[in-house]
């Protein structure tokens, strides 16, 4: 795992305010999402984050963050 389980939990939690505010921000550029569309976007982001988190670390230089958190 590239991130600690607790770190992952917090990252997912931080998605909540981002998603909630996203609708308001997008409405400024005349993109109006319905609740369902927002939920779909949210689910997609969750999947992306989970895939990223569970991808095996292969030491290609992008894993510095994962290393630091692994001690938790």
């Amino acid at each position: 795992m590239r991130i600690s389980k607790a770190g992952l939990l917090v990252v997912l939690a931080l998605l909540a305010p981002l998603l909630v505010e996203l609708r308001t921000v997008l409405s400024w550029v005349n993109v109006e999402l319905t609740v369902l569309e927002t939920a779909v976007v949210g689910a997609a982001l969750v999947v992306v984050i989970l895939v990223w988190a569970f991808l095996p670390e292969n030491g290609d230089g992008k894993t510095a963050e994962g290393d630091a958190s692994s001690e938790n």
């Binding site: 939690a13 510095a64 963050e65 630091a68």
Partner: peptide, 26 residues
Amino acid sequence: QRGGEGYFGWLTALPWRDPVFTGMAL
């Protein structure tokens, strides 16, 4: 002190597993 590095990378070095820390940070 816990080995965090980088401009934002240090954030991942915080003890997120600890509810005392995470609760206060949130």
